[in-house]
Amino acid sequence: MRRTHYALALVLLSLSGCARGCTSSRPPIHLNPNMDVQPRYEPQAGSAFFYDGAAMRPPVPGTVARGELRDLVNEAPYWTGKDTAGAFVASVPLEVTDAVRERGRQRYDIYCATCHDKGGDGKGILFERGKVPTPSFHIDRLRQMPDGQIFDTVTNGLGLMPSYRYPIPVADRWAIIVHLRALQARRLERMGGAAPVQAAVPEAAPAAETPSPQVTP
């Protein structure tokens, strides 16, 4: 008799645990921890130690990692889009190969097409749904803009456009510009116009840009 009571109590208890279908705001019961959560810091983890709660720390300003050296004296156009005098460079300081063109197309479709659309008309999905005022690339102002200035815009952002320096490495930014120019050239050809001369020296560089790394701010 007592055995049946115990058995019944056990069955009722297990059924009351709401085996399936209940919602709870608490995390699930996890009886066997099994090294699922380890005492180490993982990428994108939180931290109980740092003031901002993040385990990922920014590199100390002024330091240079191995393989991340930028020759800003001899290769300034590549890293900043400007020559040493501070003027935007007119053309991409890269050897343009098919690989670069293909990479540029791929990266453009990933990062730029959401706003600027795949043809460069500025009517990407974010324009349609979010009404961001993206310009078309097929206007004289943007056809005449030097490549270095486009690089600068991609790196630092402009107006509502955020800075893309973090998702897009430097080499890919130039590849995207190559692709952008190709889009402009093809549209111009279809419309039957002549290629305009790009402005060699701009009036003034835009102010208040975030400095490149490896230079004392």
């Binding site: 608490r26 995390p27 699930p28 019961i29 996890h30 009886l31 699922d36 959560v37 990428p43 994108q44 983890a45 939180g46 931290s47 901002d52 709660g53 993040a54 385990a55 990922m56 920014p58 590199p59 330091t63 240079v64 990692a65 191995r66 393989g67 991340e68 320096r165 973090y166 490495p169 430097v170 790394p213």
Partner: peptide, 28 residues
């Protein structure tokens, strides 16, 4: 602590340039 601990995903607010989380860097 029978329950699964809550783990948050905490990305960089301003990510450093050319750093991929999970790929280590080396400093001399």
């Amino acid at each position: 602590g029978c329950r699964k601990p809550v783990e948050n995903i905490v990305p960089y607010v301003t990510p450093p340039e050319e750093l991929v989380p999970g790929m280590p860097r080396q400093y001399a």
